[in-house]
């Protein structure tokens, strides 16, 4: 018991924020993150992985580093856009926390849910806690009917085919034990939406436990949200690949 509480006191949460042209959103998400962590009293760091945004995201990040201190805001930029998967690997190499939180920097994921993720993780000693838009008080804002139909339909087909044991597979607001994320990153090869889905499917395969927290997903406030025919086709391809190989 004493060891457990000592461990608890040492828990540190590293938030990975991959950015590309998020100069508007980055200060806001960082501000919200800092406030959320300060209120809950958890130990944290925010790792900003900027992929050479031409809009000056990096300059804004440097200002934030000055304001909040380089122990809280870590800048680990890369020269060009190299994709989400490698951004996580890159960020993780510099993470000093024993838990990693992955979220979008575009304000669609609200940091207010992080204390709930942490509580959930401790409650069941889970390896992964996944935010879900499809359960309880979870939901979305800013989606039209067509987008909702596609989302619900795709989710249903995925549930039937893969029976993954988690309700939101394409969401990317999650908390991982660091070593679990490292292990999963070695195994996962897909890109885009499928990447998030593969992480959960592989996690189940490897016997990791998954807890869920309902979240509200507020679609991009600044900038454009993307869901085109291409995304749907590559989603289906990825789904069938996972169906046939896992």
């Amino acid at each position: 018991m004493a060891a457990a509480s000592r461990n608890r006191a040492r828990d540190k949460y590293s938030v990975l924020l991959p950015t590309y042209n998020e100069r508007e959103n980055l200060p806001l998400i960082v501000w919200l993150l800092v406030r959320s962590f300060q209120e809950s009293g958890s130990n944290f760091e925010i790792i900003v992985i900027d992929d050479g945004s031409p809009d000056g995201t990096r300059e804004v990040a440097e200002q934030l580093e000055k304001i909040y201190g380089s122990d809280k805001i870590l800048l680990r930029p890369r020269a060009k856009k190299l994709g989400l998967g490698t951004a996580y690997i890159h960020g993780m190499q510099h993470a000093t926390g024993n838990f990693i939180i992955i979220m979008d920097a575009d304000l669609s994921h609200h940091p207010k849910f992080i204390p709930e993720f942490i509580r959930k993780q401790k409650e069941g000693n889970f390896d992964i806690v996944s935010g879900t838009r499809y359960k309880g008080n979870g939901g979305v804002y800013g989606w039209d009917l067509k987008r909702k139909i596609i989302s619900r339909g795709a989710n249903f087909v995925t549930q039937v085919l893969l029976r993954p044991g988690a309700s939101d597979l394409t969401g990317s607001f999650r908390l991982y034990r660091k070593e679990v994320l490292q292990k999963l990153m070695e195994k996962c090869v897909s890109k885009g939406y499928v990447f998030q889905m593969e992480m959960i499917v592989r996690a189940r395969q490897l016997g990791y436990t998954i807890g869920e927290v309902p979240i509200s997903f507020v679609d991009r406030v600044y900038g454009e949200s993307k869901l085109g025919g291409n995304e749907i086709v590559s989603f289906l391809k990825g789904l069938l690949t996972l169906f046939a190989t896992t």
Binding site: L28, H110, G138, G139, I149, R152, N155, F156
Partner: peptide, 21 residues
Amino acid sequence: IGYRLSTFNDCEAAAKELQEQ
């Protein structure tokens, strides 16, 4: 799918709260 579609929450309050924040 129809049932889940009709019970899909619209998070108006969350969006408003975010704007204020």
